[in-house]
Each structure stands twice: as structure tokens, then as C-alpha cells.
């Protein structure tokens, strides 16, 4: 078991509430997308769960056990972030060996295979790596860690299109072979949206959405046409947001709309996850 539960978690930095009463459950062996604009609290959330930050109030538990200074809970989490936690004079292969000490399930053969696939020279020192390879060696650590809970905080930072594709495929492959709870925090929503089973969205430290990706996509519609007709149609409906271009308007609506109830001069379409995200977090 490895279920993460946050109960009314608040984290303050001085006057700023980076997390504001967040309650959410990350269920075992699901792939989550943790989304939010810059400064929404995504990294703070991951850091609170992995005990790198203490919550100001509220509680984080893994399988009912508090994570606060608890080795059992922490041994279950591998947290990949853009931060470098090792001296930059260390070689990649030395970091693999150190990680093996902390994560006994670390798969050295798999790490070496992935390094080869990504074209990463493991004899190189960290300080000699490009931005892309700095992300890549951490991706490899995370995928090889064997931890039942893995956080990816902006995993594809600086990766070219080929390497991003390789990462998503490696992630699905690993997940199929050995399921784990993956929480992926990313700004590149479109390319990750087909992989994510459940979406968690933060806005200004608050949880504003926690739903299955399929439900989110099924529950949002875009209606476009002459502005006055769109306004008339939207009366009494839950509006997420709108785009205006001259006399034309596109309104984003929450809930189900049947094509039959639509006036002739309006067009119905389905916005993708990224468009819905923009409307929800604007």
C-alpha cells in the first residue's frame, strides 16, 4: 500500500500562504497530473509530502502514518525536482550508487540501460551536464528508484522533443511492468494529458480541481458564434471563461450540452485539457 493523504494542509512563508487548506488523496498506483500556474504551490505541495518542508498546519500521512520525520514513510517516496541535491563534482554513476544505498530496490541495470537509451555518459560529472542531461539523469534516478511513490517536478525541463517522447514511453513502460504512484507536475499539459489518469489543479495555494482526466474532458464544452447569441445561450449555465474576437465569442461551459439544444448559428466543440486549464486558472 502507498496512499498519500493530505488533510487540511497549510504552508505559510511569512505573509504568503503557499498552500491554503489543501485536502487531497493520491491513491495507490495511479498516474496523477499536478497542474497549476507558476507560484500556485505545486512544488511546495510535493516538498511538504516528501518532508523537505514542514506544513504550518494540517497533516500528511502515507498509509495512515505521519510523514513528519518518519523514515518508513519517506523511504517510499522518490522526489525528482530541478534542484541538485548532490555535489556537482560527483559523477553520474556515483550518484546511481549512492541512490542504491537509500533505495534498496534501485535497479542499476535498468538505470544503465536508460542512460544508454538517452545517450547519457555516466562517467561525466554533474557540473559538466547540459540543462537537458541535468533533467535526464534525475529522470533515470526516479524511474529506476523502485519507490512505490515517485514525484516528477517539471521532469522534461530542457529536454528536446525526442527525449521527451523517450521519457513518456519509458515512464509508461515502467509503470506497466511495475505499477507505482506517479505524480507529474508539468507546464507542458498537452503532451502529458493522455498519460495522466487523474488531474489535480492548484490555484493560489488552493485545490480547485481533483478529478479523473476523462471526467474533466467530458465535462467541458466550448460554444462559439456571434457574441449576442453566445451570451443568450450561456444564461443560467456555469461559465468557466470566454475568448472574444471582434463580434465572435467562444464561451467555455461546465456541464453537458447536447448538440440538439444548440441554436443553429452556434458551434459546439470540445476544448482540450490545456484550454480548460487556462480557463480554470485565469
Amino acid at each position: 500500500m502507498s496512499t498519500i493523504k493530505l488533510d487540511n494542509v497549510t504552508k505559510c512563508f511569512g505573509q504568503t500562504k503557499a498552500l491554503d487548506g489543501v485536502s487531497v488523496v493520491f491513491e495507490e498506483n495511479k498516474i496523477y497530473g499536478l497542474l497549476g500556474r507558476n507560484g500556485a504551490g505545486k512544488s511546495t505541495l510535493l516538498n511538504v509530502i516528501s518532508n523537505r518542508l514542514f506544513p504550518t498546519s494540517g497533516e500528511v500521512t502515507i498509509d495512515g502514518i505521519r510523514v513528519f520525520e518518519n523514515d518508513y514513510a519517506l523511504s517510499k517516496i522518490f522526489c525528482m525536482s530541478d534542484k541538485n541535491l548532490y555535489p556537482d563534482t560527483m559523477k553520474v554513476k556515483e550518484i546511481f550508487e549512492i541512490t542504491k544505498l537509500y533505495y534498496p530496490e534501485f535497479d542499476m541495470n535498468y538505470a544503465q540501460k536508460l542512460s544508454h537509451d538517452f545517450g547519457l555518459n555516466i562517467n561525466k560529472k554533474i557540473k559538466g551536464l547540459s540543462t537537458g542531461y541535468n533533467s535526464i539523469y534525475k529522470i533515470i534516478l526516479a524511474l529506476s528508484s523502485g519507490a512505490p511513490i515517485v514525484f516528477f517536478d517539471e521532469p522534461v525541463l530542457g529536454l528536446d522533443a525526442n527525449h521527451r517522447e523517450l521519457f513518456y514511453k519509458a515512464l509508461i513502460d515502467k509503470y506497466s511492468e511495475k505499477p507505482a504512484t506517479y505524480v507529474i507536475s508539468t507546464h507542458l499539459i498537452e503532451e502529458a494529458s493522455d498519460i495522466i489518469e487523474r488531474v489535480v489543479i492548484l490555484k493560489e495555494g488552493k485545490l480547485i480541481l481533483d478529478e479523473d482526466t476523462e471526467t474533466v474532458l467530458a465535462g467541458g464544452y466550448a460554444v462559439s458564434g456571434p457574441a449576442t447569441a453566445v451570451d443568450e445561450f450561456c444564461k443560467g449555465k456555469e461559465l468557466l471563461g470566454q475568448d472574444v474576437l471582434g463580434g465572435l465569442k467562444t464561451a467555455y461551459i461546465k456541464g453537458k450540452i447536447r448538440a440538439e439544444e444548440l441554436p443553429e448559428n452556434l458551434e459546439l466543440s470540445k476544448p482540450d485539457l490545456q484550454k480548460l486549464f487556462i480557463q480554470l486558472t485565469n
Binding site: I31, I172, D173, S176, E191, D194, T213
Partner: peptide, 15 residues
Amino acid sequence: STTEISVGYKINPAT
């Protein structure tokens, strides 16, 4: 297999 499909098309294995 479903694994081959999900890896090939980069979609969630559950999907």
C-alpha cells in the same frame, strides 16, 4: 498487447 499500445501511443495503460 495493452502495454505495447500504451507505450506506442503514449496513453495511460488504464485507458
